[in-house]
Amino acid sequence: MWKFIVKRLIMLIPVLIGVTLLVFLILQLAPGDPAKVILGEQATPEQIQELRDSLGLNDPVLVQYANYIIKLVQGDMGDSYKTRGPVSEEVFNRFPNTIKLTACAMLLAVVVAVPLGVVAAVKQNTLFDSISMVIALIGVSMPIFWLGLLLILLFSLKLGLFPSSGSEGIKSIVLPAVALGFNHMASIARTTRSSMLETIRQDYIRTVRAKGVAYGVVIRKHALKNALIPTITVIGLQIGYMLGGSVLTETVFAWPGVGRLMVDSINGRDIPMVMGCIILVCATFSVVNLVVDILYGMVDPRIKSQYKSGGKSK
């Protein structure tokens, strides 16, 4: 198991290098001059040129990228073009808010979606199954930002139950978590339903039922555990999508997280800050995938035995 974990962590290095290179090149090709954005429209050409020299923006792109990677390996994400402060300090100050929002949204999605998918599979082709799948279809199809605006209009402006923006108090996280989690709840519910339907049709389930075991016990102790493997996969992927979707959610609800910081930095052409945000999100996504792979072994002993043998089939 430990060899597998170390191997996955080593594989994270080329992934991060590829992501940083791609994002760095895209930001370089984006229109706008960071020096002009920082100094404003009233800046003289001499002031702009002086600032570009001090920031290293006149160097070739590959030289700029090499200098950035050298600093990054040393633990330095650089300084923000806008605030002139360390990028790592600002990013890590915002990151707990993003994690809090993502955790609440995922908790809401899992608590609602898994039981919904299980019951829908057990009650296949009933009214409950049809209604739950219609809700799931709406959740998959509805954009996060549009749902967020609807929630603000109804629960904040009309009913006054929750604040429309900010992060003060528990109430502030309710609407962003619902907006972010609803779409992913629908995907998890559909996957759970499909996996449960496939599992309860297996021969060993028929055998257990033929022995007189109660149907509820069969579902809880035999079918659900085997049906959870695809669900765990989807949950792991959805966490990564939530980290990306938090950009829209945090912007709509003015939530002070990494997503909103990234949008503001892109608008201000603050390349080091954008790079810092993306590196942190990418690393978190990779770690989540590693945790999901470990959970496979806890759920399915066959996968655990593959980890112990180094992935070699016997």
Results as ranks from 00 to 15, higher is better:
M1L: 11
M1T: 07
F4N: 00
I5L: 12
K7C: 08
P14I: 02
V19L: 14
L21I: 15
L21G: 14
L22W: 08
L25I: 14
L25K: 06
L27H: 08
Q28R: 12
Q28H: 15
L29D: 14
A30L: 14
A30H: 04
P31H: 13
G32I: 08
K36C: 10
L39M: 10
E41M: 15
E41K: 15
T44E: 09
E46D: 15
E46K: 15
E46L: 14
L55V: 04
L57C: 13
V61E: 09
V61K: 10
V63S: 11
V63W: 09
Y65F: 13
A66V: 15
Y68P: 00
I69P: 08
L72G: 02
S80M: 03
Y81A: 10
K82M: 15
K82W: 11
T83K: 02
P86D: 02
F95M: 14
F95N: 09
N97E: 13
T98Q: 00
T98L: 02
T98R: 01
L101E: 07
A109P: 06
V112A: 11
V112T: 14
A113H: 04
A113S: 11
G117K: 05
V118G: 10
A121C: 11
N125R: 15
F128G: 12
D129W: 04
I131D: 10
L137M: 15
M142Q: 12
G148Y: 07
L150Y: 10
L150P: 11
L150Q: 13
L151S: 03
L154S: 09
L154M: 08
F155S: 01
L157G: 01
L161R: 13
P163M: 03
P163V: 04
S164G: 12
S164D: 12
S165D: 02
S167K: 03
G169I: 04
G169S: 03
I170R: 12
I170V: 14
K171I: 13
L180E: 07
G181N: 05
A186Q: 11
S187P: 00
I188Y: 06
A189M: 11
R190N: 00
T191M: 07
S195I: 05
M196R: 00
L197H: 04
T207V: 12
V208M: 05
V208W: 09
R209E: 15
A210C: 08
A214D: 15
A214K: 14
V218H: 00
L224F: 10
L224I: 10
K225C: 06
N226W: 01
P230E: 04
P230F: 06
T233G: 05
V234M: 12
V234Y: 10
L237R: 10
L237F: 13
G245R: 08
T251F: 11
T251S: 09
V252A: 04
W255L: 03
W255E: 06
P256L: 10
G257E: 01
V258K: 05
M262F: 07
M262K: 01
M262C: 14
S265W: 00
I266R: 01
R269C: 00
I271W: 00
G276H: 04
L280H: 01
A283Q: 03
F285P: 08
V287D: 05
L290E: 09
V291H: 06
V291G: 03
I294W: 06
I294Q: 08
I294A: 13
M298L: 14
I303C: 03
I303A: 03
K304I: 07
K304Q: 10
S305Q: 13
Q306R: 07
Y307G: 12
